[in-house]
Nucleic acid binder design. Structure first.
Lengths: 214, 214, 214, 214
DNA sequence: AATGAATGAGTCTTCATTCAT
DNA sequence: TATGAATGAAGACTCATTCAT
């Protein structure tokens, strides 16, 4: 955990040091990767869109793949940040009387993140299938850290009799599936007349009922 | 619907006419596309793996993209086939007393399909973000046909008092999310000690409870 | 000369034996070669336009180049036929009192030929620069036979005092240049309001005056 | 005319900016195009002969066709330069008492040009039939500018009674045909014992007599 | 630090030609 | 005789990366 935190700090703080050109490169690359995919995007396109010379990209990122990792790795960390930030996590565990409240907070928090990072998240999701290291990184972080923390939370609410006696992994699976389905619908299908409040209420009700003890 | 059926027949039956070389090409391409993605797979790799000359690929598929479409389009149709085959659908609607039974049948049926078509489905899912025509095709078929048929089914069980008064679209979303999450876990995470029967039971119980009227 | 005549007969008569498919192939190839050039025309295009299978072309013509030669060689012979047909030639020499009359007959005769063979002639002219054998063939036939026959004719009219004492080669050059310029203008530039009779009269007058003794 | 001059300046001066590699590419391409034709010359051949990597060609010329145009367009302009350079033209009109003198100057001037640009001119002539844009460019420049300027000159000498009352277009046609025939003989047939002075004298005499009033 | 010209391996695709049917 | 599937070499062009300036 110490090591992870350190690496995360490095990654996240490193973005403070970026020159404007570097930021342009990252922004351009993210946009193109999200749109056409990593493999179908050429470094010359990125350079053009970023307004820099092609050589400049390779001064900052040794290879094209390096550029991808520089985008994807910190994002993956930020995706799961609520689960690895100890302080916040403690709060989560104890601040919310009911599992529903915890869920609602979680959704709101991640929603805010998505609103600001839609493209990068798209890149992460789209590229994971093609890059084993990314997959490993993802499994290691999400599967390990998130599962661990989430389990504790679930057990907490199970102890309070709010969740049925189901394996925490199954709870995690169902909760994530439903929330992901919600986000996917909102951000990809983008239906007209989408009533956010009502949708979230229904979603939480569905989850709570489905997970409640008989 | 007639037109769709016809096109489907064409697509699906066309696979009967395939020469052995064509089948090799499709198999090799599917495998590589699933593994490395369309854009990162070269036609020379495909040719080598298929045991044919590179030129042979282009005799059968005008472009590399054409080859992708020849893999993906029929698969998309087969993915949703239970929803567009009138007869099966009727059966589904009426044969199952309880919504749970309908769900169980559905899951079994699609599971069998996945068991035989895992790779192609992987290609479909992975490539959709990068090819607008695929997305359109998908939305048109799934969003239209599946939604429509599924809605009828949902309303049928709502009338029987087994499903709460939720918009069918929301029911569809939650059901698909949970089932997809189940498949994703099974096929991607592939956890050790996976007890299929028990998982399906839990999954159906979760859905049924979550969707049941208060 | 005997050999030439024989080869010519072979070439020209051989066209009688052609099957319909062969004729289609020759016609299609001629059209495409005239339009896009030999090197830029593919055998598959020719096959398609001729309505035959690609293999069929190679059954009749061993190589693509062979097909070109089958078009070009007989045409080259027909282009210069008035000079190698002994009988006609004799007539030419003696039937026309004045050089002008000879020229007029010549132009009319070649014009008729061009009207029927414009495309093939186009191919001949366009491809000669790229195929040394064609150039050689051309020089041998035109440079040898035509020059020889035309020289006799010129000398005949020089003896009659109608042409100045210029080397026959120079006369040939100027006469051909002017006639070619005339045809080029007519067939390529194709100016509106082209009065054929008047143009020919002027052309002959120009040549006659230019070549006349002081 | 202003626009043309500008474009010409651009085209011609642009050749000053060429790097050595670019010059090598142009030289190699010209040589190969002249010898085998545009369509039959591969970019890899050009690269090899120019001593550069194949990619380098495409850094300077977006397509192979672009490379052709970069060779052909400025050459076409230089071919007709005596007719579009106002100052020279004025001189031509007035410096020469007799049409013969004008012709002699013209021939000498163009001969010098040909001596230095034989290959490029070959390319222009050989490729025009296959590239409509080239043909259009040629017709527009030669047909328009040259015809116009030459007409004025012809009318000048007609007014002086040196040329018969023939349409200037016809004069232009005959003069160009004969001069082209002269150049073709000199550069293509390249006969032994060619006496340049004598040939030009005869040629001019032929033209002058042929065009003189009765 | 930034450039952009240069590279050559690699891309998709087309080609002329062959051969089993 | 005619077909058209199959070939693999070659085509034009693009790519990620390097390096001298």
């Amino acid at each position: 955990m110490e090591k992870l935190d350190k690496r995360m700090e490095e990654l996240l703080q490193s973005e403070g040091d970026l020159t404007e050109k570097q930021r342009n490169i990252l922004a351009a690359a993210t946009e193109m990767f999200a749109q056409k995919g990593f493999a179908a995007t050429s470094t010359s396109e990125i350079a053009k869109k970023a307004g820099v010379a092609e050589g400049t990209i390779f001064r900052h990122y040794k290879t094209k793949k390096d550029l991808l990792l520089s985008i994807v790795s910190p994002t993956m960390l930020r995706m799961i940040s609520p689960f690895i930030l100890k302080d916040i996590n403690k709060v989560l565990n104890q601040d919310y009387e009911r599992f529903e409240d915890f869920l609602r907070e979680m959704i709101k928090n991640r929603q805010a993140f998505l609103d600001n990072n839609l493209q990068v998240v798209k890149v992460v999701i789209q590229e994971i299938p093609f890059h084993p290291e990314l997959r490993d990184q993802f499994i290691q972080h999400v599967g390990q850290k998130v599962y661990q923390r989430f389990s504790e939370t679930v057990q907490y609410y199970q102890a309070k009799g709010q969740i049925a006696d189901i394996p925490p992994a199954t709870v995690l699976r169902n909760v994530s599936s439903v929330i992901l389905g919600y986000f996917a619908t909102k951000y990809i299908v983008a239906p007209v007349g989408w009533d956010e409040e009502k949708e979230i209420d229904e979603l939480i009700a569905f989850l709570a009922k489905g997970l409640a003890p008989e």
